[in-house]
Amino acid sequence: MEIKNVHEITININDQPYTIGVQAHHTLLDVLRDQLDITGPKECCGVGECGACTVLLDGQAVNACLILAVEVDGSEIITIEGLGGSVHLSPLQQAFIDAGAVQCGFCTPGMIMAAQYLLNTYPEPTKEEVRVALSGNLCRCTGYDRIIDAVLSVSRQQKERVK
């Protein structure tokens, strides 16, 4: 069988529309990082175990390494770049800095996206709920406590919603 590999997809990433050709076997993470230079989402395990590639797909936290780019035609994606930047940090980004929840930083984009998803769905989680919500995100540096403190501090302050 002849392999027809390139598909045109239209997606909205961080409120910007894109119409691009993607290879059938490229993941959403491959396309974000290598084709569109949106390198906030990280590739670490590549098989759904570490959460470093977490993005919001139509509002749901997912592992971008386990989704083909062609599958998401017509969808809306939010990456860490969509939360805020160096000029205007989102409350959760600021809270990570204030709590000392970032060390090497490799897990941070995925961790913040998973935490943002939690706050979008449960604005006032308990400590245990934060732990469960972040159980798909590995961090080799911080020991997790400061990450959990950062998330809890935002849930107490405000309820800013990111789609």
């Binding site: 069988m1 059938a24 590549g46 098989v47 390494c65 386990l66 083909l68 062609v70 599958e71």
Partner: peptide, 28 residues
């Protein structure tokens, strides 16, 4: 028969990546 069905992909993508399956077609 040289195809795989794709639902959420949480098992299938892991197997495609490891090369343990190499179908000619993926039917989502």
């Amino acid at each position: 028969d040289n195809y795989r069905l794709l639902a959420g992909g949480t098992d299938l993508l892991v197997r495609l990546k490891s090369g343990s399956i190499t179908p000619e077609a993926i039917i989502d």
